[in-house]
Design a protein around this nucleic acid. Structure first.
Length: 787
DNA sequence: TTAGGTTTAG
């Protein structure tokens, strides 16, 4: 095959190049060297359109850049591709791809003087026996600014699909196949009685057929990194055998796996022991389709249990952090863990010798009320012993056993991880990159405890100093009942007024109050975020992501206008997708001082992009503005779509109050000495009235003399959380939920609620019949140690 | 080779 797609694993080509081929550097590409078995490897820096020569032969030219010699001026070489190979390459090759060119002919480059490239060029064709290998990579590997936007959103494609995947209803005894499946059951890797680790995985796929696979490997990392039921795996080279009348999968030589989170909408990031992967659009699509199928066809287990959800006699999986460990006897071992919540039942403490207990003594003491003892048995002991304190774990199928005192008057819960691997019993160490770990860390961190990594390097005295103000959850809650949970940011000299007196007064007036939060609306906190126009004072819901998608799809009807490309203040690139839609995408990179900036400082405008592509660009670049072409300028899309994306935040304009201007108005910011690309400034020059994200909540406050409803209208001051970021940030959502739980702890009696100190102002609103008095909270913030 | 899903009984 003259053009072949390659994958690089651990820095080497997955399929080795023929052994007779020797890599040649640019300096050796000249007359006098033997190039018979040589190959040149470079990155596609430029490609020209496919053309036909005078005799009708197809011709395709690319410029390859030598990545081993990035500094010298002549570090690129022309590659001239002829005939069928030119046609094939033109279909496949994109900027940023790595090409390996073998069996080439070397000839003097007639254009070397003009283009400044190598004195020789490479000529390749099928007739000459040339071979081109194409390696497609994801963008982060490269630093050539101008191209990486192309690299990571170009659809990847293969000339001939290398792997064929068999669905689970078509498996045949004695074959070795590639397959995809959704994990229905699994045993985390454990040490078998032989020499290897073992993991048992049961898969299901849309054919509704199950397959149990028994996987062995001496290297733990080579087994699939499955963390929960519902994960999706891709197995390559798994052997199919019949066992007890059913098909069974077993590892064969060269077995390899990728594992993906199975939740719809989660990022599609493969987990594997390899460092570098190819990742095709096709694969991404398969994963997304399997996720959708699983969501509607498989039963889900619901949210994972926390210690606060534990009920007697249940078996459950726990995501937690290891705080301490101790040997108990020959067949059992103690793990002390926490997950930031408190078990509602008394739990046992396994007696161990103090000298046998490993872990930070101060921390163990501080967290004593919220850690639980898990006794692990038999085959789990060896793994348990090896885990470092501070690690994040998922312990599968823990038994919460109810045990009674001798006289049966009191009971407590014991946590056992029994011996054996039935029901997937086992322990998995989760990497720091795991989403559940990130969430747990953020949650634990929000409790004002030191980071686990710092903990280990701190002395006990230091540790005591850093957080002796918060010892555990109980005292945290007690503190909230004694001190006000909100504090005033101004007007400290004002005296408190009772609610009854406020209710009997006329508006408008300002008051300082001391009250308790009996209830609040909305209870679902994400419903409290709205968009506010400060000009017309209107409030609106945050538009749905689907609306944005529809507007984007609508905008692709207008093809980018090439006359608007490459102006004095932006550089443009355009290409057509290779799928059946043949979508045209144009990206305009705004320059500063006639130079392109680093991506993190760059504003770009995109035409014809999809939602996914725009998100990816927004992650990488400072600002993204979706636009479309008109005859004489680029223009913004409909204002139901965000007119600007920065990181996670989508900025919208008020439809009523905005008068959009041509996007060339942006060039005035680009010309500034240090363009900061602030949303307010961008909005202003584009004639957009920027909508601001705001929290709107209704607090029902009581103080023993009366009750009144006060509105909270807050951009970020009250919660010390920007309303613009709450919808896309789990950590901030947890932080806000914790703040509300402290202001108004669920299930508490009125006496047990914390006091709030607030400023409120009364104001009149005229409705159909008469003036009504409303109240709004102002100059108040949640106390520092609550958030 | 190992395990080959379906809870310990401490």
């Amino acid at each position: 095959m003259p053009v072949q797609l390659l994958k690089i694993v651990k820095g080497k080509f997955e399929i080795p190049l023929p052994s007779h081929l020797q890599k040649q550097s640019l300096e050796h590409l000249r007359e006098g060297f033997d190039h018979t078995n040589g190959y040149f490897q470079g990155i596609v820096a430029l490609s020209y359109p496919l053309t036909k020569l005078g005799d009708g032969t197809d011709f395709f030219k690319v410029v390859l850049q030598d990545m081993d010699d990035f500094c010298s001026r002549t570090n690129s070489i022309n590659v001239l591709i002829y005939g069928k190979m030119a046609e094939n390459c033109a279909k496949v090759i994109c900027h940023g791809d790595t090409l390996v060119v073998a069996e080439f002919k070397l000839a003097k480059s007639p254009t070397a003087k003009e283009d400044g490239r190598h004195n020789y060029h490479l000529e390749v064709s099928e007739e000459a026996g040339s071979v081109i290998y194409v390696h497609k990579i994801l963008g982060e590997c490269l630093n050539i600014f101008f191209f990486y936007s192309l690299i990571f959103i170009m659809p990847f494609q293969s000339v001939a699909p290398k792997y064929v995947y068999t669905s689970l209803n078509h498996l045949k005894d004695g074959t070795v196949v590639n397959l995809y499946g959704i994990v229905k059951f699994f045993k985390p890797p454990y040490l078998s009685k032989g020499t290897d680790y073992c993991s048992v995985v049961t898969l299901v796929d849309p054919s509704n057929v199950k397959l149990t696979c028994t996987l062995f490997n001496g290297n733990l990392d080579s087994l699939p990194k499955i963390y929960k039921v519902g994960d999706i795996v891709r197995f390559h080279r798994i052997k199919v055998r019949e066992y007890n009348g059913q098909m069974q999968g077993v590892t064969s030589a060269g077995f390899a796996s990728l594992t993906f989170d199975g939740s719809v909408g989660a990022p599609v990031i493969p987990r594997t022991s390899s460092r570098v992967y190819t990742f095709t659009d096709e694969e991404q699509k398969i994963i997304e389709e399997l996720r959708v199928w699983a969501a509607s066809n498989l039963t889900t287990s619901g949210p994972p249990a926390k210690l606060s959800d534990v009920q007697p006699m249940m078996f459950f999986d726990l995501t937690c952090q290891l705080i301490g460990k101790a040997k108990v006897d020959g067949s059992s071992f103690l793990l002390k863990v926490w997950d930031g919540t408190k078990c509602p039942y008394p739990t046992w403490k396994v007696p161990v010798e103090a000298r046998d207990l490993e872990g930070d003594k101060v921390l163990l003491h501080q967290l004593r009320e919220v850690t639980v003892d898990i006794l692990v048995y038999d085959n789990h002991v060896q793994l348990a012993k090896s885990i470092k304190t501070g690690s994040f774990l998922r312990i599968y199928s823990i038994h919460a056993k109810q045990a009674y005192a001798v006289d049966k008057s009191v009971s407590h819960i014991e946590f056992h991880l029994h011996g054996g691997t039935c029901y997937g019993r086992g322990i998995g160490v989760l990497p720091e990159s795991n989403l559940d770990v990130k969430e747990l860390k953020a949650f634990l961190h929000s409790m004002d405890l030191p980071d686990s990594q710092n903990m280990e390097s701190m002395s006990s005295v230091e540790l005591d100093d850093t957080f002796n103000y918060v010892t555990d959850l109980e005292s945290h809650l007690q503190r909230c009942q004694q001190l006000p949970a909100t504090v005033l940011t101004d007007h400290q000299d004002l005296k408190n007024t009772e609610l009854k007196a406020i209710l009997n007064s006329t508006a408008p007036k300002h008051y300082r109050i001391r009250a308790k939060l009996r209830t609040y609306k909305p209870q679902k906190l994400y419903q409290s975020v709205k968009l506010h126009c400060s000009k017309c004072n209107s409030l609106q819901e945050i538009p749905d992501g689907d609306d944005f998608d529809l507007i984007l799809q609508g905008s692709t009807i207008t093809a980018p206008n090439p006359e608007l490309h490459n102006t004095s203040w932006y550089n443009s690139v355009m290409w057509t997708t290779q799928d059946e839609k043949q979508r045209k995408i144009a990206i305009h990179f705004v320059k500063h001082d006639e130079m392109l900036q680093q991506p993190e400082d760059t504003l770009l405008m995109i035409e014809g992009g999809t939602l996914k592509e725009i998100w990816k660009l927004a992650e990488r670049f400072k600002c993204v503005i979706p636009v479309r072409s008109t005859e004489d300028d680029l223009e913004l899309l409909d204002l139901s779509a965000p007119f600007l994306l920065q990181g996670n935040v989508k900025y919208y304009g008020c439809k009523q109050c905005s008068t959009p201007k041509p996007v060339k108005s942006l060039s005035s910011i680009a010309a500034e000495q240090r363009p900061a690309w602030e949303p307010t400034e961008i909005a202003q020059v584009l004639g957009i009235e920027l909508l601001q994200y705001v929290f709107i909540m209704k607090f029902t406050l009581v103080d023993g003399t009366g009750a009144l409803n006060a509105y909270l209208f807050d951009y970020e001051k009250f919660f010390q959380i920007p309303a613009s970021e709450i919808l896309t940030n789990n950590f901030l959502q947890q932080k806000m939920q914790m703040a509300m739980n402290t202001l108004c702890p669920p299930g508490r009696k009125l006496d047990d609620l914390p006091w709030l100190e607030c400023f409120i102002k009364s104001y009149n609103v005229r409705d159909a019949m008469k003036d009504r008095v409303y109240y709004q909270i102002f100059d108040t913030t949640v106390a520092d140690d609550v958030v």
